[in-house]
Design a protein around this nucleic acid. Structure first.
Lengths: 236, 236
DNA sequence: ACTCATTTCAAACAAACGTTTGAATAATAC
DNA sequence: GTATTATTCAAACGTTTGTTTGAAATGAGT
């Protein structure tokens, strides 16, 4: 029986986690084999099953190691804001900063592997594997409702349903922002060298706030439905 | 030798493509086996290699079948807008509607499998498999530069680099919007039944435009050089 | 020193993967 | 009709996958 107290295991466990995290980003879960992981971590093949039990459990531990801390930091940031506000509703900008600012700062931390992990996390919202989705749902169950409530209070005139959708859109933008340069290259056509890690947050945050506070569809003008006359498909 | 003229093959080829598309959405590329595909399509296992040559080629054909038409529709919409404008710069919302409106309408088409494919496509921007990325890059090489240029002309005061990033963010938001309900459930905590397929576009479009036209970071911070200030913004 | 639990290691495991084969069948042309 | 080509099919191919095994090495306690 392996000891689950990290003090008892030297660095084999951490070496595996680090190597797995890196390879998952590069190749995805399924395409990353245990042999790739163990050879990169310079440990024996069997040690993965010895320390984690299975590949599936390893994947969950890779996430748990970072995600738990991340969500705690998010909640702490929100707690502090709400304490300062003394019962008054927060500003949207504060809420967004608490939720998205934390992972963005983690992503900017290229030293401790935070950047690597965030690219992995961004991809995972759309990961179809059920055990990953279930795990993510459990992990977010504690943090998302708090932010939902804060946003509802901050934007009392916007229908709650609409807020949830826009929160969803913001998650997508952040996901791409962090998954980042590789996918952007697909669009930009050339590699953007971003040396300043904080620049990403300064780019993304205004975008998120602009989207969140945009006028609703019925409010100003029609948004879709005019542009197609010659599209072969039926008009919506 | 297989015939590449679709008239010569009955429906085996199409059956495989349909089944593959559906299973790729559900389980991803790697987790979807040829045996799953062929058993769902009710064809023999060997027919995939017979008709497509390899699993990799099948994946590319699944994309090509839809993506070629999609990008042609995007370019056609842009062509029409530019013809109407007679040389004048387009409005941002026209450009956004041409690029994002087409896939949104395809996604709303649940009858012909468009919805299924769009969920697949959204995930694929962040797909790490190199042959998928290369294929996507080739497929977008014809359409993205046109839209880039149009946006540069429409927003002359915004640094081009910033436009590209925001375009990237918009892609992320759209990706999540379409991948949609499953991932949203993760956030909302409950299933949102969306009967009206056009509602998604009415939700997403204002968000995208709000993000695109948001004031730059120089407004509150001073670190990044403030390069623009003259365009009247509808901040809220 | 010995003991005992923990961890490493090389080797093998069954299962599943994409792919190939060669014969059987269907379709088309002459 | 026969000849020819295109497609289907069951079976097997060689690899690779995650996992298991049992013995060797390591470390701590007494």
């Amino acid at each position: 029986m392996p000891s689950f107290d990290p003090r008892h295991t030297p660095d084999t466990r951490a070496r595996i986690l680090d190597a797995a995290e890196l390879l998952f980003v590069e190749h995805g879960f399924e395409a990353t084999t245990l042999r790739m992981i163990t050879s990169r971590a310079k440990v024996n093949l069997a040690s993965v099953n010895y320390h984690f039990g299975s590949k599936e459990a390893l994947i969950q531990d890779v996430f748990r190691r970072r995600l738990t801390w991340l969500n705690e930091a998010r909640l702490a940031a929100l707690d502090e804001l709400e304490a300062e506000a003394k019962g008054a509703p927060l500003k949207p900008r504060q809420i967004i900063d608490a939720f998205f600012g934390v992972p963005l700062r983690v992503a900017a931390d290229t030293e401790h592997g935070g950047h690597t992990f965030m690219r992995l996390l961004g991809r995972t919202y759309t990961e179809p594997a059920t055990f990953v989705r279930q795990f993510l749902a459990d992990e977010y169950a504690a943090v998302v409702p708090r932010f939902k409530q804060a946003l509802f209070r901050a934007l009392p005139d916007v229908p709650p349903e609409e807020i949830l959708w826009r929160f969803h859109f913001m998650l997508g933008a952040m996901s791409y922002a962090i998954a980042g340069v590789d996918a952007l290259q697909l669009v930009a056509g050339y590699e953007m060298d971003e040396k300043d890690p904080g620049a990403l947050a300064r780019r993304l945050m205004p975008f998120l706030l602009g989207g969140l506070r945009a006028p609703l569809a019925g409010q100003t003008e029609q948004t879709a439905g005019k542009a197609e006359k010659k599209t072969p498909r039926k008009a919506a």
